[in-house]
């Protein structure tokens, strides 16, 4: 992919900037004065504003809602979008809280001996595959006890006000390296190097950032998810560990890191077919997650349309 292609596609996926310093200041005041409940309360008014006046945001949420709740009426769908907005707002507030008070939330973990070994003891790198479903930043923050360095493959926050207030949800306290997927060759060389050095490389499994995708079923229709995580893991001979996080109470999160795959190419099938199978396993897991926790899925871009084809 050329730099020009990446810039063009970057523009296409750039989110509209929402929130400003004044708005964030109001939330800070509510947090200090009334705690989480106060900030969450203010959120309902703000989300109502977005529901009524931000057509772009509503349309982005509606794509997912129509797939997740087929058969719902128009008003019901607006209600679903509103709940999505509120949950995403809560996630941002929680990230802000964690940046100042890392231990504010309780944290439970579902894991296996194998996944814990991969994360804690193995000298191999690990691809940690997550998506815009649940508060993955909280889980990463709680991985502070890991000996491994964490490398986040993500675009720097577009919105300066949000970037300054969230500060990666407190992750800056750890030796976290950010790999820009819009950098040279999509950052894949840096990912390979990090995995070779035994790092945890965290990749978003639902954002293509202009990279190649494969068609896999998601919520009953063909969708397009990037397969780069599996390709990089297969090349680096590292496992892919899925991370799914959701909130179980106002001050508690649970992270599921019990699903892991070792992508090794076999004979008889093309690499593309094998990548498609591995990717399908992950997307199936994601589908199960959003079926259980429909309002913790923040796919505010259309994974059912290929980038450059009306996405």
């Amino acid at each position: 992919m050329t730099a020009a292609d990446r810039t063009e596609k970057s523009s296409a996926i750039r989110a509209k900037r929402r929130g400003n310093s004044l708005g964030i200041w109001f939330f800070e005041i509510m947090l200090r004065a009334f705690g989480l409940k106060g900030a969450y309360g203010l959120l309902h008014l703000v989300c109502l504003h977005y529901l009524l006046f931000d057509r772009e945001a509503v349309a982005a949420g509606m794509t997912y809602v129509e797939k997740r709740f087929p058969g719902s009426g128009v008003l019901q769908n607006y209600r679903h979008v509103y709940r999505l907005f509120v949950n995403q707002g809560r996630q941002l507030i929680d990230r802000y809280v964690i940046a100042g008070k890392p231990d504010y939330f309780q944290y439970e973990q579902i894991s296996t001996d194998e996944t814990l070994h991969a994360l804690q003891e193995s000298t191999r790198g690990v691809v940690l595959l997550t998506s815009h479903a649940g508060n993955w930043q909280v889980a990463l923050r709680q991985m502070g006890h890991l000996k491994k360095r964490i490398c986040l493959v993500m675009r720097p926050e577009d919105n300066p006000a949000l970037r300054d207030s969230l500060q990666l949800g407190g992750l800056e306290a750890k030796p976290v390296k950010v790999i820009d997927p819009l950098g040279h060759l999509g950052g894949v060389l840096e990912m390979m190097q990090a995995l070779g050095e035994g790092d945890v490389v965290c990749i978003m499994g639902d954002r293509a950032y202009g990279f190649d995708t494969l068609e896999v079923p998601f919520l009953g229709e063909p969708a397009y998810f990037p397969y780069g995580a599996f390709l990089v893991a297969a090349a680096a001979e590292c496992p892919v560990l899925a991370l799914l996080t959701h909130k179980i109470s106002e001050r508690a999160y649970i992270a599921d890191i019990s699903n892991m795959w070792y992508p090794v190419y076999g004979k008889g099938k093309s690499k593309r077919e094998q990548l498609s199978k591995w990717l399908g396993n992950y997307v199936s897991l994601l589908e199960t997650f959003v079926e259980k926790h429909p309002y913790e899925c923040f796919l505010f871009h259309n994974v059912w349309a290929q980038e450059g084809k009306g996405a």
Binding site: M1, T2, L185, G186, G187, L189, F211, L231, A235
Partner: peptide, 18 residues
């Protein structure tokens, strides 16, 4: 190799590393 030349992309770079 990449972009306007041979047209390889970032994922091909992974293959070349290997």
């Amino acid at each position: 190799l990449f972009g306007e030349g041979l047209g390889l992309d970032s994922l091909d770079a992974v293959e070349i590393v290997v």
